[in-house]
Design a protein around this nucleic acid. Sequence first.
DNA 1: TTTTATTTTCAATAATTTTTGAAAGTTTCG
DNA 2: CGAAACTTTCAAAAATTATTGAAAATAAAA
Lengths: 168, 168
Amino acid sequence: MKLEDAKIKYIHTWGSLATSWGINKTMAQVHALLLVSTKPLSADEIMEALKISRGNVNMNVRALIDWGIVRKEFVVGERKEFFVADKDIWELFKQVTKERKKREIEPVLKILDELKSGVEDNSEEAETFKKVMNDLSSVTTTVNGILDKAIKADEHWLLSNFTKMIKK
Amino acid sequence: MKLEDAKIKYIHTWGSLATSWGINKTMAQVHALLLVSTKPLSADEIMEALKISRGNVNMNVRALIDWGIVRKEFVVGERKEFFVADKDIWELFKQVTKERKKREIEPVLKILDELKSGVEDNSEEAETFKKVMNDLSSVTTTVNGILDKAIKADEHWLLSNFTKMIKK
DNA sequence: TTTTATTTTCAATAATTTTTGAAAGTTTCG
DNA sequence: CGAAACTTTCAAAAATTATTGAAAATAAAA
């Protein structure tokens, strides 16, 4: 396969992966483009490469910066802004996990905790409900804690712990 | 809080959580409704509770059955079908993980593997690309393996391993 | 300061996804 | 078998989400 075709295939794949996880397709594609680029890219270059508008590039680049997975890079002799994505994939994974945890897990956990304790009723039915809320909260808290640990870990840690687990 | 209000709040919360993870809102709400119901529900009851059409109920209930988290239950003296969701939340978590892994992780892993080995080019640029694909594949494979382990585990296992990890 | 380059915003538009509802299909019962 | 009860399908409509593009804002250069 030709390098350019492989890059395009990767960018497409990343776009659909994002869609299936509730993330904007273009946002993922801009990130993918930067990730496989050997040099910082300007808004114009991103527009050209992905055939999207300036406004779209701007919004998605800002979102990526907000997620902490893309940053501005100054290029000598250039007035416009250039962007890069770090190539450390383990860091990328941790950062994405951290953001999703903050945005999409923790607020739900908060509501579950309210629900498990906020119902006064003591009927059989209410107890069943509270049990379900409690179990949802418990599993979610456990997963959340594991993700926390992963966020702080280095890749080697994860791999070695994983290997130990497997062997048990 | 009144039990009915708490149920409604939970159903709404689950719907938006689903949306943010790329899952149909109604599908999640039907599941949430069944999860907090103390008895099997018919299509008519689901329509009434969520104020949605028969077609919508049918499609989403089928999808939930396909995901393995809802099943039909026969009710004596009734001709129509009734549905239930198992209340074992750890099992639910494992089943959802299993399905998402199969649907949304493994196909991507396959493509990454093609990309990391399918580029003939040996330029500096091509090597950078292959390195990125390789790292993506490696992190994804590790995570996939951990999920595999979780799917096979019981809740106690996860909790105890997690506790051990934390202490290190 | 004025001009020019560049970035940002956001209302309008387009694309995508979800839902409806009625017709067709199926199953059960008399 | 034929009718009634129930389920499924899917084209059209509605709702949601994403994108455009031009005007406004900002920043740098002259």
